[in-house]
């Protein structure tokens, strides 16, 4: 019954959107009130994005991860049911925001009330004005970890030369290893589908040094429970990114929902819930710089 009601509500909402396109005028529907009325919060998370969101087993509907748990906590606090769905990442964030939040997928993926894991970045906000990016909840950056063959993980990165390197394909860690230090590490890089997989390769003896996001590094080390796998403590020399904040996106006209979510995240930050959710995956919660 609840599902059916959601469908009708969403169609009505889409019709409203079309009217707005034809003759620009403010929408009267209050999204937060609508979510409460329907009793369901629809949240979109990335597919294959461990430790943030992934299906276990793969291709099942059993979703796990930090973003999944956060979405669950938000829905609980709002007193509504969680309707969470994975989507495949596109070539850029504009594609993801379009598919997941403000338009929906061309093949029927229904737009969500909230999309998790959106970089909280001014330029991104300006370029994607059909949605609002808000509620920054974590400070992410890139990091490295080493396996038993590379005892001293804190040497200057060029000294990793000759070691077997691991990174997720087409990420900054990948570009970093392929292009930095005159390309001297390039020919010993092995590519994986995700950063989490790249770090796991340290435990299976496939690699000696892995570069990934800090959350991926910490979660994979936590998952392996192998004392020989250890994180690098120093920053990586000449890393292209100093780090970024991660937030969420809602439709541009859903600011009332966004405000409520910001309030919930603020409360969870203060009362230790954020720390606990991240900690369950072995990740140290780092508040966003702009929070």
């Amino acid at each position: 019954m609840g599902k059916q009601a959601t469908g009708i509500g969403r169609r009505a909402f889409l019709a409203g959107g079309l009217v707005a396109l034809a003759a620009p005028m403010p929408l009267s529907a209050a999204p937060l009130a609508k979510v409460r009325e329907l009793g369901t919060l629809r949240v979109a998370v990335y597919k294959h994005n461990r430790p943030w969101s992934w299906a276990e087993p793969d291709n099942s509907t059993n979703l796990r991860g930090i973003d999944v748990d956060l979405a669950g906590a938000i829905a609980r606090t709002l007193g509504v049911k969680l309707d969470i769905e994975e989507f495949t990442a596109g070539d850029d964030m504009a594609t993801d925001l379009r598919n997941a939040v403000w338009r929906g997928g061309l093949l029927g993926f229904k737009p969500a009330d909230i999309m998790m894991h959106v970089p909280f970045d001014r330029q991104l906000m300006v370029e994607n004005d059909q949605c609002a990016i808000l509620a920054p909840y974590y400070r992410e950056s890139f990091a490295a970890a080493c396996g038993p063959e590379q005892n001293d993980c804190d040497v200057p990165a060029p000294q990793y030369r000759g070691r077997r390197m691991a990174a997720a394909v087409a990420t900054i860690p990948d570009i970093y290893l392929l292009s930095s230090f005159g390309g001297t590490l390039r020919s010993s890089v092995t590519h994986f589908n995700t950063g989490h997989d790249a770090v796991l390769a340290l435990g299976t003896g496939q690699a000696d040094v892995a570069v990934a996001t800090k959350a991926e590094v910490e979660a994979a080390i936590f998952d392996m429970k192998n004392p020989a796998i250890h994180p690098r403590k120093r920053a990586l020399e000449a890393m292209m990114s100093p780090g970024w904040d991660i937030g969420m996106a809602v439709k541009e006209n859903s600011r009332s929902l966004g405000d409520a979510v910001e309030g919930i995240i603020g409360k969870m930050s203060a009362d230790g819930q954020m720390k606990a959710i991240f900690g369950a995956y072995g990740v140290e919660w780092r508040p966003a710089l702009s929070a």
């Binding site: 990335y46 087409a170 990420t171």
Partner: peptide, 13 residues
């Protein structure tokens, strides 16, 4: 594009 993002992560596009 030095400050680009892909799949929620910083990316050199």
């Amino acid at each position: 594009e030095p400050i680009a993002y892909k799949k929620g992560s910083a990316y050199l596009g």
